[in-house]
Design a protein around this nucleic acid. Sequence first.
RNA 1: UGGGGCGUCGACAAAUGGUAAGUCACGGGACUUUGGAUCCCGCAUCUGUAGGUUCGAAUCCUACCGCCCCAGCCA
Length: 563
Amino acid sequence: MGSDESKTDGMDFIRQIVADDLASGKHDTVVTRFPPEPNGYLHIGHAKSIVLNFGIAQEIPGGRCHLRFDDSNPETEDMEYVEAIQRDVRWLGFDWGRHLYFASDYFEKLYGFAISLIEIGKAYVCSLSEEEIRSHRGTVTQPGTDSPYRDRTVEENLDLFRRMRGGEFTDGEHVLRARIDMAASNMKMRDPLLYRIRHAPHYRTGDAWCIYPMYDFVHCLSDALEGISHSICTLEFENNRELYDWIIDNVPAPSKPRQYEFARLNLNYTVMSKRKLVELVEGGHVSGWDDPRLPTIAGLRRRGCTPESIRKFCDRIGVAKANSVVDVALLEHSIRDDLNTKAPRVMAVLDPLKVVIVNYPEGQVEELDAPYFPDDPPRMGTRRVPFSRELFIERGDFMEDPPKKFFRLGPGREVRLRWAYFITCVDVKKDERGNIVEVHCRYDPQTRGGDAPDGRRVKGTIHWVSAAHALTAEVRLYDRLFDDPTPDGGKEADFIRHLNPHSLDTADARVEPSLRDALPGDRFQFERTGYFIADAMDHTASRPVFNRIVPLRDSWAKIAGKK
RNA sequence: UGGGGCGUCGACAAAUGGUAAGUCACGGGACUUUGGAUCCCGCAUCUGUAGGUUCGAAUCCUACCGCCCCAGCCA
């Protein structure tokens, strides 16, 4: 580490606050938490928060990060989600150790805090209907009006609240509210609801409760109970901070955590809101929560992204307070950047075109050596690739009437077959409709391995497989789910109509036989094409299935696209 | 026309009054048995706008403009 680097170099504003608090002695260490509600799957926006919270805890001696399920709404939460969330956080590479918590475990303590608030006259049972409460709240420009139940006596409130817990009332009959100020300019402070009656079984507490605390009451006190030092959340909770502090200050809380807010992650060409993700899954527009086109952690994992690349991506985007939209190209870059050093190279032809080497002996087969890591051959050694008279090359690597800058195969042109021979196209066979069905070439036996003893060079090198030896594999070519950078542009626009019809194209590819040994989850670079992973669910030795994680940068496509 | 936030390169994002980092994208070049990777070079005389303070302002002051959040018994 450069000693001339300033201490705060590379620190985001939250890390600076933490550093300041440590320096001033306000805290001895840091305790953060990641507090998902178990009512949906995690997405890459959550990854930003996870990387931030767990990351800070890792950086500070003695620091820790809790995983806490914020489960105070019995109607939407489920064990399925808590398991999925734990799996995702672990996969991302983080460990909460023994610090796994559930807000539902605090229900009894929370109830006690509510009682204490009632006892000092700072909370009351309100018996207005839902609609009445809404109308009494006023608007952003007009103050609200006091509830007629606002001045109930402490005894009456205590009695009513206990009976609420006891199940004497129906849903919506009463609520517990904080007694703050119905004219507050901050809407969140207009006597916010603390508890509501819900005769619904909770996935963890069963039917032990029929009253459930609201987010604002649960969150700050859960933080306080766990001794959280820095409670980091997203921008939309800025207005809630005043209430967060008010509750902590008016209850015998064991500690006083501070809340800090940062901007949530937005990515172009996708949607991130839970509601829209649910719509995609339930509407059958994708195959499930782990569809490789989704920005969910499960989807990214199935797609083949490495956890390292996602962590790196989160580091690169930074943490700040300005609403922003990150270019998905940065995510793709992070993925390539990571896989470039990890994925062994192999050859696969996605859109096969037959090539006959007319001067190659019929029936002859050669085993050619090809390194898995051409830039670092010793790393993984080589595999044998069979070469024979009939091959497949990529249809896009041949043009009957190629432009000047096209460095691949064309009539009379010579190219190198990767790790094999130089070949020159001598003939083109077409069907009755004029489609090219076969290309005839001559090979130069002197160029075995890909080098010409006479020193002559070729401009292009293309990949290939031996027709008789290649394996057929299903290749799933994933692309952006939406063809519009802001599919939910504006507000509640119909994002479904911006679905990219080519977000999943399937191809029957021919892949080199060494891939027979690929195991589900193995990643490769199919040379000149992209990074692929043997699908975790569907890949088998007899029926190989590869997902495209991300294509390679393609400068020819760029040149061709300009014309 | 209440309150809370935020505006720095096409996209993120540093700079903490001392003369606009870095990354992605983009353009150009070198190298290359992947048109990949790698390596060079270029890319904000300027920080939403207009004034002011100061020797000096993205940073301080004033006014204005724009965008986001808050009126769930969701979180």
